[in-house]
Amino acid sequence: MDAFLMQYIDPYYLRILVLIGINIILALGLNITTGVTGQLSMGHAGFMSLGAYTSAILSLQFAAPFWAALLCGALVAAFFGFLIGIPTLRLEGDYLAMVTIGFAEIVRVFFLNFEPGGKAVGLSGIPQNTTFGIVLLLVIIVIFFNARLLKSRLGRSMYAIRENEIAAEACGVNITRIKVLAFTIGAFLGGLGGALYAHYMFFIRPQDFAFMQSIELLNMVILGGMGSIPGTILGAIILTIAPELLRIVAEYRLLFYGALLVLLMIFRPNGLLGDVRIYDLRKRWMNKEVGA
């Protein structure tokens, strides 16, 4: 598929499309933890890192098939997501955020000293198995399952926890279980995104998954509108393209990026799609139906 597309699309644009796809998967994972369930996670890159390294080592050392490397990467990340979810039993808000930051930093330092991971030099020569076709397929699957989850019984209880924990408990929601579940699913997608990233970039280093990467993913979720799938997708698209568009301003790129974040928050404090309600759209549609 990629070879076919390459005839029509400039490889540079194809590359941006692939990165957008990977970021959508990563951001949708974080959206479940932070956007939907309201548990501020500032260490999503840690899960990405675990997925990337696990899958890369499996590919390089054990010549594992691509799908197996992806799955293992995602599962290892999910396991750590499960572990990180457990402190949420006791911690709230910014204390939890600190634990997630600490976790991601520990993961980074671990890989900096991890012999099979190439230490600070990282790993190179990872087979470039991630193609546009595969990313597109996975993005569609992830969006589909995500949408199913969020409008299910479990998804509703996640939103309920974000809105009011005490009331959610009074409705019989086992808060602890749902929070751990949200972390685990978020981490699974983080690991999947990381594994795709590793098999696209050819080359990974610990600092690819540093604090700034976590923050960029968080930006995508908040910018688009917390808890909204279309919002998160839009956030991922904009924040992947923005740095590319800002290349014309060369070294001033990040200066504009920073200013852009401030301005967006001042003028759209609830995120780009935070005020656009699917309910409103549905209501309008329902009314029309009634009228007709």
């Binding site: 509703r156 209880s157 939103y159 009331a167 929601v173």
Partner: peptide
């Protein structure tokens, strides 16, 4: 203590959890 940013219907649906 309602779920402020959920629809009226979803509030009740969470109730059946």
């Amino acid at each position: 203590r309602l779920f402020a940013k959920l629809s009226v219907l979803d509030n009740v649906r969470v109730g059946s959890h």
